[in-house]
Simulated scan of single mutants.
Amino acid sequence: MALDVYVGSLTRYYAGAWENLAETTARKLGAPRPAGSGKLIDATQSQDQIRPKVIAWRTKLAKALGERVDALLDWDETEAARWFTHRPGWDGFGSLVIWAAYAENPTLRAPETLPEEWDDDIALARSTADGFRSRYSHLVRNVEMWLPVAFEITFEGDDVDGRRVVMGSVTTLRRQLADLNAATWKASADEIAAWGQMPPERRTVEGCARYAFSLLTDLAQRAHAERLPMKLDH
């Protein structure tokens, strides 16, 4: 199953008025849309219908969080809001999560390639254990949506469709990604950008992690600059 990361209004996301990279490529080549794709290309009316639901969800979420998040949950949900997407894939995203877990558990030896059941990895289990203060909490704690607001906690709640997901902060994710680079690769901005030009030929944990790191760093920067949510799509 593919894994894409979307940045933009949640209205556009739930209306399906965006394309992942496979859909964009198929459209440009005049090929049929990839199997399983139900997204719309022009969904102006659908966005008008969905927007009130998103705004109501955001208001309810703010009330539920109360003082746990000392920031206003507010961002652009109009059709004018820009949107962006990349496809790190599960190999890339999983490798990045594992790389972060081993970075803060240095007594453990990281695997060369991503295990099939990587979410059961011992270092990841330590990083997500109760009471462990992870330096990379907004990456390793199974977060599926990052809100464009500054806060330190991660929390579980209903998304717009009522599905339980873990949410975090775009601001904190950006900082933690920078911390991960400083603790491990110490790569320059140009080097990081180059990592995302194409998936690595050798599917090592570090190679795939670098690729996903480049894509997520770019998207988190865009989400921060545009003040928009960032969300996994799978």
Results as ranks from 00 to 15, higher is better:
41 I>L: 14
92 G>R: 03
80 A>M: 03
220 A>M: 05
94 G>E: 07
72 L>P: 09
91 D>C: 02
9 S>H: 04
10 L>W: 02
25 T>N: 02
57 W>R: 06
15 A>F: 06
9 S>C: 08
212 A>E: 01
196 G>Q: 02
93 F>H: 10
19 E>C: 03
31 A>M: 11
209 A>Y: 05
11 T>E: 02
97 V>F: 03
152 E>A: 13
109 R>V: 13
150 A>C: 00
131 G>K: 12
165 V>M: 12
119 D>V: 12
135 R>D: 15
90 W>C: 01
149 V>C: 05
3 L>E: 00
60 K>H: 10
68 R>M: 13
74 D>T: 11
33 R>D: 09
201 E>S: 12
78 T>W: 01
177 L>P: 05
97 V>W: 06
158 D>N: 15
103 A>N: 05
106 P>F: 03
48 D>I: 11
39 K>W: 01
168 G>C: 09
103 A>H: 03
162 G>W: 03
49 Q>M: 14
158 D>M: 10
145 M>N: 09
226 E>G: 06
145 M>E: 11
177 L>K: 08
110 A>V: 02
152 E>S: 15
207 G>F: 06
82 R>P: 14
211 Y>C: 01
96 L>K: 06
127 S>E: 04
224 H>C: 08
38 G>P: 04
57 W>N: 06
136 Y>M: 00
32 P>V: 02
119 D>K: 13
175 R>D: 14
105 N>R: 04
83 W>L: 03
173 L>P: 08
68 R>G: 14
77 E>Q: 05
122 I>W: 00
10 L>V: 09
207 G>T: 08
13 Y>K: 04
99 W>N: 03
193 A>N: 08
22 A>L: 04
109 R>P: 03
83 W>Q: 13
69 V>F: 01
20 N>D: 15
13 Y>T: 04
210 R>I: 06
13 Y>H: 07
183 A>G: 02
217 T>N: 15
126 R>Q: 12
49 Q>V: 12
183 A>S: 13
139 L>I: 06
109 R>Y: 01
99 W>D: 02
131 G>T: 11
162 G>H: 01
200 P>T: 07
175 R>H: 13
191 E>F: 05
79 E>I: 13
152 E>D: 15
54 V>D: 01
201 E>Y: 12
132 F>Q: 10
101 A>K: 08
58 R>I: 01
85 T>F: 08
94 G>R: 06
34 P>D: 04
17 A>P: 08
11 T>P: 05
177 L>D: 04
57 W>Q: 07
38 G>Y: 09
95 S>R: 05
157 G>D: 14
207 G>V: 04
213 F>H: 10
21 L>P: 01
63 K>H: 12
172 T>M: 11
114 L>R: 07
183 A>P: 06
120 D>H: 12
232 L>Y: 04
151 F>A: 00
